[in-house]
Design a protein around this nucleic acid. Structure first.
Lengths: 223, 223
DNA sequence: TCCGTTGGGTTACGCGCAGTAGGTTACGTA
DNA sequence: TACGTAACCTACTGCGCGTAACCCAACGGA
């Protein structure tokens, strides 16, 4: 360590000296930055760290991405584009709506399964803050969602519990996003937004599956 | 300005000197911090600013809230609790599920309408970053959502356009939240998550209202 | 062969904010 | 009136940010 005087150029990607063509450096930096953003979250991410790991001085970053936020956005765009493509491709060539939904959903959750932390960076919306904070905010969200579940259960006492929970999460997420959407489209009157939302929430509520009767109750427990 | 030497104690809330009982100070700080968090976003928020405006030195903050994140969470909790109560109260005493959903939704969007920026702080999930960044991230989200809309339109060409857009936002939001939920409950197999999600997305898709036939087409435009 | 130019890179500085250690002053109470 | 404690402050250390100013290898004419 202690790279002091350019003594050992530690060739990056097969280029002599520390010097590397613009495009290559850019990719290398993006790769690294993405990792660091994922590990530390937007807040704790430090440009200095990035530079240390990349073996490059700070002005380079500003030269390439303009600002910290520029760098962040560049990372987001890259990952997001990648995800979006696999997602859309999965749904595009479906024969009917039913299949489009299913294939899209499957692709979406496969992405999450494959690389959860990477997904959190862009879609999760949480990794913008440090790990602990993100968790505590999730808890807050969950509190509300639990209360939604409770109310739902009152009206559908025999529904499958997991389905109710899932439904509550979906409703909550849908509400939030529709809220954000509305803020960007304030001309739409409230009643109409509420209508849209209700269509959404009501129908899925009506479809909640019943819990399976508990066949194991009172039976001999398997040894 | 230039409050230099405690010369003018500028009584806070009717207390002589700068000295104020713990609980009162806490409320005062929360109030102020909330405003600043809303104005600057989590990232740009500076404890120094808060102190300047509150006429108090930095250690006070740490004494009360432990850390920057502690302060942030305290703000979130306060607002969130308030919102959650009005929301839940609205839905709680509904006669049936239909009414519960409608009343809940109405309460929810009324909250947004009344105080959009405050809502963004907690539920928006965007104000954690500065204004510009948040907007650009919203754009990214919107790109994806537009593509969802496009696919939906292909399968339901005569559906009302706004409803399709709303549906896309809802589906996207629901997906994100279900993703987060899944990350915290990794034991659930993917197929089941996909099922839950599909129930949700499919039913609301089937309910998409048709666009009104365009009665003005070819008619004399109203002067 | 020399020389300007350009592209990739660096050092160094000033600033502001975060936390913390240790001190100070007002207030309640015996 | 003397003491403990609650409220508050000054001052220090340290770090990361963003920028200005400079450096130097390579390349392509003339």
């Amino acid at each position: 360590m202690a790279v002091s005087k350019r003594s050992a150029p530690e060739r990056v990607g097969g280029f002599k000296h520390g010097r590397v063509p613009r495009a290559v450096r850019e990719q290398q930096l993006l790769e690294l930055a993405e990792r660091l953003f994922i590990e530390s979250g937007y807040g704790a991410f430090s440009i200095e760290d990035l530079c240390r790991e990349a073996g490059v001085s700070r002005p380079i970053i500003y030269d390439h991405f303009g600002s910290r936020d520029g760098l962040y956005l560049a990372c987001l765009r890259r990952v997001r584009a990648e995800f979006e493509n696999t997602l859309i491709n999965a749904a595009r060539d479906a024969p009917d709506a039913e299949a489009a939904i299913r294939q899209g959903a499957d692709a979406f959750f496969t992405i999450i399964e494959r690389d959860p932390r990477r997904w959190s960076l862009v879609y999760g919306g949480l990794s913008e803050l440090g790990g602990t904070l993100a968790d505590q905010i999730y808890e807050l969200r969950t509190d509300t969602i639990d209360r939604i579940s409770a109310i739902t259960t009152r009206f559908a006492p025999h529904a499958d519990r997991e389905a109710v929970t899932a439904h509550a999460h979906a409703v909550s997420g849908a509400g939030e996003q529709m809220g954000r959407w509305w803020l960007h489209n304030p001309d739409i009157p409230r009643e109409r937004i509420v209508d849209h939302f209700c269509t959404f929430a009501r129908m899925s509520f009506l479809q909640l599956p019943m819990a399976e009767p508990d066949l194991t109750a009172g039976s001999v427990p398997a040894s």
